[in-house]
Design a protein around this nucleic acid. Structure first.
Length: 722
RNA sequence: GUCGGGAUGCUGAAAUGGUAUACAGUUCAGUCUCAAAAACUGAUGGGCCGAAACGCCCGUGCGGGUUCGAGUCCCGCUCCCGACACCA
């Protein structure tokens, strides 16, 4: 028998869903309430959608469809994190402007997303590199500046001498440039920072009220790195320590070193002992943490000991003494550092600041936003920001304060700024007068379910920070933007390695769609295992779910019209509804799909009203396999979409099996099984049956015993051996 | 080193403290076919006893413990993955 024609039904239903605007976000929120479901917006790369994207997007798609069927008003939007280095590098190589390449990639991505049946409201589509979007990214920068939370200061940055450009930390791998393998050096440059350190404690506290994976929370806690300790003065040198109880063992002071290790040539007083101790420069002391100086206690710290041994410094043996606390002052120290957002790159949001020789840095007046990215720019790297070379960018720029001629900032912002607030703009994506309407954001936020990669110490902390800032200036109504976050595990290539051109192990999701259909692709990726675990791709697994869908549809075609009395079918589909409901709620889609397969396997032996059974099955299948479910729904005689139906109710009374297998254990080992009517499976009955069994008798043999009875499960005879 | 997560058949994996290996894949055998593919049926942790059936033993990384009963809880390890890392 022929397989169902996935290409035909996908084309047919895609068009109808599009024409009827089926996935439009409702204007008014239903009495049941709202749900905001979001997958991290992707960078639209030239390579098109990756199977890893599909995993995230299929998961939010299933969940949002389920919530919609449960009567919630659901917002499930999508957009493009389109600024960034890959497009710029491509431009350097080919001369094609990044906006052209980006636009092309977006078209490809969007097409591919539609082909895998993702239920997005495209009327809310956003694009980070669109001036209508980055205008408001700039606006946020100015609000931060006005509150003293954006400032410019000298800072060391990563510099690739061969590419002649600044690199982000993520682009430095083992101290080498990710692209050309040159050793990266540090340069001191004037940079813009966001003062995220002001929010350190609140970012830490907020973790207690959100439902995130333990690992992501732990990473953020470590990153913030709160430590309670003491500041201690050794004359004019102040140190930070968490072990003030070892103060009397401090035999030297080590300060951060900007040239070479060695004795500074001066002594300071240990306040606890009154002794003079030497001050040394040491490699292991960081300028950026604490006070940039530590007290050296060789007897209690390995690094201090190593240093003391190396330079033959005194090692004082002692026991910790809590009374030392009186020599210091309590101090909370964080590891978190301010967020460096300047980039000497072209393809990003221009920093909306003007430098005046008299008035200093001034924000561009808000009515002059956006500061548009100039198009007359040679992207080739020369060591300065490419925008410097624009002939138009600085034309007629005046200081907003004094009106004299001034210069614009030529750096752009880190793309993580763009993605720190996009989830808010989705609530009111086309607003021309404001960043968004407060009411609309209040209505839809927080995000109820957020799924994506584990950017614990980048995107996920930056977005919390920006949201918290917007909360402080009363634009946003909740301090935490993402109530529940799920991270997806990586999908590895068939050879167990990260998918990469280098290994030639990349699976193109669209090839899978062509061959097996969008439903099979979705189902397979969800069936592979738990969402957050790393998975290895296996194409024969796709064939497995494909076979399942074909078997299902063939059976459907020959039975969907059969009416009949309520038979065993009704019970199995009721059980299915119960299981799949629970599995979607728990985000364990793999077991939900297994439940559908199991149910289908059972259906071949069952009897009853097939039409009713298929109706239930189709509704349960709909979030997972939207195309096939829609086709089945139509065959069942409906004229409206399966995706606007209510999620089926199940009758708990129907779910109880009338036959129960009771197990008889002897000392915890299974020795006998009985099938019983559920009404009869009481303790007395099962005990009587067990005692009648020759096998059980053999084990009991007149020995004394007691029993443990677990209703509907088992009876355990504990025999007194000896 | 610190923090987090894991370890179950040949593989992906399932299992509110209660019948371990559901659901798939793989492989093998069979049906159909001139043949192959597809589809369908069956088998697929190790061992023992057997002609077969029935049955028995061992099995969830290792060693202990709690419990009538442990993949699951507790203590101590080993290994793997991820993040951070001279953070005082």
């Amino acid at each position: 028998m022929a397989n169902f024609d996935h290409k035909e039904i996908e084309a047919k239903w895609s068009k109808i869903w599009d024409d009827t605007n089926l996935y439009k976000t409702p204007e008014k929120i239903a009495s049941k309430g709202k749900k905001y479901v979001l997958g991290m917006w992707p960078y639209p790369s030239g390579a098109g959608l990756h199977v890893g994207h599909v995993e995230v997007f299929a998961a939010t798609d299933i969940y949002s469809r389920y919530l919609r069927m449960n009567g919630y008003s659901v917002i499930h939007p999508m957009g493009w994190d389109s600024f960034g280095l890959p497009a710029e590098n491509y431009a350097i190589k080919t001369g094609i402007h990044p906006s052209i390449q980006t636009q092309k990639s977006i078209v490809v991505f969007k097409n591919q997303m539609e082909r895998i049946g993702l239920a997005y409201d495209w009327e809310r589509e956003l694009n980070a590199s669109d001036p209508e979007y980055y205008k408001w990214t700039q606006w946020i920068f100015i609000q931060l500046f006005k509150k003293g939370l954006a400032y410019k200061a000298k800072a060391p940055v990563n510099w690739c001498p061969s590419c002649e450009t600044v690199l982000a930390n993520e682009q430095v791998v083992d101290e080498k440039c990710e692209r050309c393998d040159s050793v990266v050096t540090q340069r001191l440059m004037e940079q813009w920072f966001f003062k995220i350190t002001d929010y350190a404690q609140r970012l830490l506290d907020g973790l207690n009220i959100i439902d995130w994976p333990a690992s992501t929370k732990a990473m953020q806690r470590n990153w913030i790195g709160r430590k309670e300790g003491h500041k201690i003065k050794f004359d004019d040198i102040e140190v930070f320590t968490t072990r003030i109880d070892t103060l009397h063992g401090a035999s030297f002071i080590a300060i951060a070193n900007d040239s070479q290790e060695g004795f500074v040539g001066k002594y300071v007083t240990n306040p606890a002992t009154g002794k003079k101790i030497p001050v040394w420069r040491a490699d292991y002391v960081l300028d950026t943490y604490g006070t940039g100086a530590v007290m050296g206690v060789p007897a209690h710290d390995e690094r201090d000991l190593a240093f003391a041994k190396k330079y033959n410094l005194e090692i004082i043996q002692m026991q910790p003494d809590p009374t030392m606390e009186k020599y210091g002052q309590k101090k909370v120290q964080y590891r978190l550092r301010d967020w460096l957002i300047s980039r000497q790159r072209y393809w990003g949001t221009p920093i909306p600041m003007v430098n005046c020789e008299i008035c200093g840095w001034q924000p561009v007046p808000e009515d002059q936003l956006p500061v548009k990215l100039p198009t007359d720019v040679d992207f080739r790297p020369t060591g300065e920001s490419p925008i410097t070379r624009s002939k138009t960018f600085q034309k007629g720029v005046i200081c907003p304060k004094c009106g004299k001629s001034a210069k614009r900032e030529v750096d752009t912002m880190d793309t993580f700024v763009d993605s720190s607030w996009y989830f808010l703009r989705f609530c009111d994506p086309t607003n021309l007068n404001a960043i968004f309407s407060k009411d609309k954001v209040k209505a839809w936020t927080p995000v109820d379910l957020y799924i994506g990669g584990d950017h614990a110490t980048t995107h996920l902390i930056f977005a919390r920070f920006i949201n918290m800032f917007l909360y402080d200036i009363k634009l946003v109504s909740v301090p935490e933007p993402f109530v529940k976050f799920y991270k997806n595990g990586h999908v590895l290539g068939e050879d167990n390695r990260k998918m990469s051109k280098r290994w030639g192990n990349i699976v193109n999701p669209l090839e899978i769609v062509d061959k097996f259909g969008a439903d099979s692709l979705r189902l397979y990726e969800m069936f592979m295992g738990p969402l957050d675990m790393a998975k290895v791709w296996n194409t024969s697994g796709v064939e497995g779910v494909y076979r399942f869908l074909n078997r299902l549809y063939r059976k459907f075609e020959t039975t969907f019209n059969l009416d009949g009395d309520i038979g065993s079918l009704n019970k199995i589909t009721n059980q299915l509804i119960g299981r799949v409901t629970r599995d979607i709620e728990n985000m364990t889609f793999n077991t939900g799909i297994a439940a559908m397969m199991e149910t289908f396997n059972k259906m071949s032996d069952a009897t009853g009203n097939w039409r009713l059974a298929w109706r239930q099955f189709t509704l349960v299948l709909a979030p997972f396999a939207p195309y096939l479910a829609e086709e089945m729904w139509q065959k069942l005689g409906h004229t409206d979409s399966v995706h606007s139906q209510r999620w089926p109710e199940y009758d708990p009374a129907m779910v109880i099996d009338e036959k129960i297998t009771m197990v008889v254990q002897i000392n915890g080992k299974v020795r006998e099984k009985f099938e019983l009517d559920s009404g009869e499976a009481g303790e007395d009955k099962i005990k009587q049956l067990a005692l009648e069994s020759a096998k059980v008798q053999n084990y009991l043999k007149g020995a004394s015993y007691r029993t443990i009875f677990v209703p509907c499960k088992l009876i355990n005879f504990i025999v007194n051996t000896k």
